[in-house]
């Protein structure tokens, strides 16, 4: 078949056809994958909540409440067992990471003691700052069972009580910043 001539009508029609078919195909695929994408995101969230608070029997992601802090939003996920609050998972953040934004899930017991921490999202350097994740090292375990009222959430270089990750003081500082933000918000009004 000979090549089509580059007349105005031909060009417009060709582009119209191509974009029409492309958008129809993408729209169909979007509908198809919407469910699985939402499910995998929710599974990840629930998994993180289960990790950071004591055992519970409600669905925390259904009773969330939010609080605006420092230009972003902290999300609180209360976890109940037999209608008694056993802990609250707080999705907190910091922009002070070595590569910017870090998103953590911090679990607090009702008195403000940290139960466990899980990293939701980070872009820290592989091999250095990424030791904050449980997969890479046990560094973040030192927070478990500590109450920020007597345990200063700052690295030892800043006269706090947290041992920084070797060669990753910036990442450790950012981690502390996020945990501290969650704790303050939780004590100030996040408690319910």
């Amino acid at each position: 078949m000979a090549k089509r001539e580059s007349s105005f009508l031909n060009m417009v029609l060709t582009l119209l056809m191509i974009t029409f078919i492309a958008s129809a195909a993408l729209g169909y695929l979007y509908e198809l994958t919407k469910g699985p994408i939402a499910a995998s995101k929710l599974a990840k969230l629930n998994n993180a909540i289960t990790q950071v608070v004591p055992e519970f029997d409600t669905i925390p992601s259904s009773e969330i409440y939010k609080m605006g802090v420092d230009g972003d939003t902290l999300v609180f996920y209360p976890a109940m067992k037999d209608s008694i609050l056993v802990g609250t998972a707080v999705s907190t953040f910091t922009n002070k990471g070595f590569s910017g934004y870090i998103n953590l899930m911090v679990g607090f017991l009702p008195d403000g003691t940290i139960h466990n921490i899980s990293v939701l999202e980070h872009k820290e350097t592989p091999g250095l700052g990424d030791k904050m994740t449980k997969k890479k090292s046990d560094w973040s375990v030192q927070f478990n069972g500590k109450n920020p009222a007597e345990f200063k959430i700052k690295v030892t270089k800043d006269r706090g009580d947290v041992d920084a990750i070797t060669a990753s003081t910036i990442s450790s500082r950012a981690f502390c910043d996020a945990v501290d933000r969650a704790y303050k918000a939780y004590m100030e009004g996040g408690k319910k």
């Binding site: 078949m1 090549k3 580059s6 060709t14 582009l15």
Partner: peptide, 8 residues
């Protein structure tokens, strides 16, 4: 390829 005008 044969359906697409060269210019676009």
């Amino acid at each position: 390829k044969s359906q697409i005008p060269d210019k676009v």
